[in-house]
Amino acid sequence: MSLDLLIYAVGAVASLMSVVAVYLALVERDLVKAVIYSAIQSVFYSLLFYLFMSPDIVLVYLPVAGGVLPALLLVLISKTERFERE
């Protein structure tokens, strides 16, 4: 039984899911939802980082891209406007 295939399959699934999240973040007009989609993308990227054996990057990347940036963008949205215009 080859165990590495399982891990690579997890990686492939994660990267496909990140494509889905990025596409939806691109076309979504409600910016709050777009921010949440980008958070989903960063969660999947952190899984990829993990599978590529870089725990240090996960520790930096998750707070930054999954926590701080959505927070800052939400602050910006709450101060300005929520919907993208046509």
């Binding site: 520790l59 999954g66 926590g67 709450s78």
Partner: peptide, 21 residues
Amino acid sequence: IVTAIPLALWIYALDIYVAKY
């Protein structure tokens, strides 16, 4: 295993600030 900690913590933070928003 350390990588699981920030995941749990920052997602809680995401909950909280969406709720606040």
